[in-house]
Design a protein around this nucleic acid. Sequence first.
DNA 1: ATGTCATTGAGGCAATGA
Length: 292
Amino acid sequence: MKIATYNVNGIRSRLPNLLEWLEREAPDIACLQELKAVDEGFPIGAINDAGYGALWAGQASWNGVAILAKGVDPVESRRGLPGDAKDTQSRYLEAMAHGILVGCLYLPNGNPWPGPKFEYKLAWFERFLRHAQRLLDSGQPVVLAGDYNVVPTDEDIYDPTHWRRDALLQPESRDAYARLLAQGWVDALRKRHPDERIYTFWDYFRQHWPRDRGLRIDHVLLAPPLAGRLKDANVDRWVRDQPKASDHAPTWVELSASAPKRTVAKKAPAKKAAPKKAPAKKAASRRSRTEA
DNA sequence: ATGTCATTGAGGCAATGA
């Protein structure tokens, strides 16, 4: 089960890139952000033809999110974050697909900092924290995937020097993200790669992609019921190298199949006592990453 | 401030957001 998030930066101009990625990587669920298209402009025909069902929340010019599911129509559970009836920006969509409850988010960028856009970012984040806690409390297998517009630590950027006054690195942004993780969510990319520099976004300026000067701002968070199923997580960097690429690359997790229902019957006696695999699985023997 | 790209509204480019 592969679940991905991809900020397409304009789904109409990016449709060829999106379709090629869907064909090559075949995610079971894909969360998209920055559609930059009204509902009527969403290319549902091409996406259906690619073998995906979809839900989307469009908006003129900016924002816009969508959830794609391979072979099925995702079942919508929420459209928009609760907590502010006046917020009309299309930044959150939630649906059930393939046995996973997936929240697709496009957290406000917040630049320029300081200012009202940054205040909006923090307010949105607080609403998101409240909703995330409720999802966690529900005990469901939830994935929260999207463009969080937060560089969690200085290990998540090529060089923070020029970004100190950017909304993506502000202590308030990082603190909100840290509080989200403290609720119990697992940052899947970081869990799988504790000590690597991993980027998901390279801006269009100053040849940042060819020089691999990136930021990690697209995140896939797993609720505890899914944490034990994490097999792998990574970034489809090749997508960023395509002609007319988005400034983001798809970021994904691979989950093992859900555990078979446990019955009362004991498992069949093992023919040979299989050597216990070293309990390195969740030993968390290396535990050194801290905030700078 | 700058860099680049997508979008829009008007126009043959400038403003805006990221």
